[in-house]
Design a binder for these strands. Structure first.
Lengths: 256, 256
DNA sequence: CGATTCGTTGACATGCTTCAAACTTCGTGG
DNA sequence: CCACGAAGTTTGAAGCATGTCAACGAATCG
């Protein structure tokens, strides 16, 4: 149906990093950590105050009207965020133009971590109501964490989980299995140097369980793929004949 | 069916942190980073060498036979791990005794991050074949990262994603919606001080999409709950009458 | 106050699960 | 090394939960 993201009047935000700057965007207010009444240990507050003794109030809280985007897929990762008040929906735009909801963030929730690896945001986040968001600039984060490598590891793990959620939520039996096989083809050791054969190390039961299906469904789908000339299954060895065909069946994937 | 984890001869491992210690476990070999031929930037290697100039070879690689556990649900978080060779399955034991597969880890993959928060492991990891695993002790990690708070944030995000994966893979329409409502009840602002009423800020479409269902299914399930006296729905306000009933329908949840 | 989005309900179609049974491979011990 | 039991895999048949299509009602927004 609605193939395009509806851009309303309050849409298209992006929270500015800098103190002022000529950003024209619907942040209703700009606040500092000082006025935040969160009692618990806040990451933003913690990372802002420790070791960096800037007593001047850093303006890192924004009040956003309903429907505002904090960031969009493709945006550079400028910060990680915390919901102070309100609620946020995170989603991905699939290649068919439909959106897939990944998460809802409530007060206290931290989001935007998947982009810490440096590849930019893959998902988008939009407010569901008037919402206050705090931000921790990536620059401060990178200084204080043991290197980009660690951030990469974390975001890789998060992205992979998102991919899995996405698969379970959107795809049918064939799509799930195709995704799984493609994923393994990327990650698993090739069978004796062969470029298109993989040796699965897990049981059908494990695969079925992972894909949220009955074991019989996995078997039948494999057979269907084989009958269709897409691949050949011999015990736990899978030889792929039609890579593009698999890609088509699998549908959208998170790139990284 | 098989309610208990089958403990085979090669089972029940846990990789020891210390150099020697009287651990009786099926690690076939104990190796140091020096002999690892991974060409890419390895987190373990990086964190072991930087700033901590221990030139003595740290024995942090283990060769594990098929079916060995790296850690189990409930175990304390001693380290984060990297697959050097082989493959690993991560799973959770559900309250009904069944297991739910969360992930497969291949060479280069880092796992065990969900426990960084300090609450111990919730999932278990087992080798699917003879597998070499590298480990980075948590102690080294904690020293180098900007505080436990940040680790908490990461593991919270990972755990929440796991919960979502788990829900999508195992639960039917009713279970998913019950889980969702309980989750919101925990996280969302209560409706004007009421202890058992929540105000949803997202559309039915968003909920359905998030739960991997049709919007009609969400409506019907809500009605079913209402007809069963479990709750009352008025627009976007949900008033819970039978909390325990919801819990029962929702089934297993990740605690934290 | 009209238009548009959101929500609800019914009827029907179907993809997947469940149940059942047979076959194959693996592992262990004689 | 072979034999036997256990575990893993495959296939068929039937039932059901959920998706799809359609239509209407309710609420929100400008």
């Amino acid at each position: 149906m609605a193939i395009q993201l509806q851009r309303t009047a309050t849409d298209n935000v992006g929270i500015p990093l800098s103190r002022e700057g000529g950003y024209t965007q619907p942040s209703l207010q700009v606040l500092s950590c000082q006025t935040c009444n969160t009692r618990s240990n806040c990451v933003v507050k913690q990372l802002n105050l420790t070791r960096v003794q800037s007593y001047q109030p850093v303006k890192n809280r924004r009040v956003l009207s309903k429907g505002s985007h904090v960031f969009r897929g493709g945006d550079e990762a400028k910060a990680i965020y915390v919901v102070s008040r309100g609620s946020i929906k995170s989603y991905m735009l699939m290649e068919d133009g439909e959106e897939q909801v990944l998460n809802f963030y409530m007060p206290g929730d931290v989001f935007g971590l998947e982009a810490m690896g440096g590849g930019g945001h893959i998902s988008s986040t939009v407010t569901l109501e008037t919402t206050t968001v705090c931000m921790l600039p990536m620059s401060k984060l990178r200084d204080r964490v043991l290197g980009q490598n660690f951030l990469n590891v974390i975001s890789t793990n998060l992205l992979r989980d998102h991919n899995q959620m996405l698969m379970l939520a959107r795809k049918d039996a064939e799509g799930r299995l195709a995704s799984f096989i493609l994923d393994m083809l990327k990650r698993v050791d090739r069978e004796h140097g062969s470029d298109n054969a993989i040796k699965l190390t897990m049981t059908r039961q494990d695969i079925a369980n992972y894909l949220g299906q009955a074991i019989e469904t996995v078997c039948r789908t494999l057979r269907k793929f084989q009958d269709g000339g897409i691949l050949k299954v011999t015990r736990r060895t899978v030889e792929i004949y039609d890579y593009d065909g698999l890609l088509k069946i699998a549908g959208s994937q998170i790139a990284r």
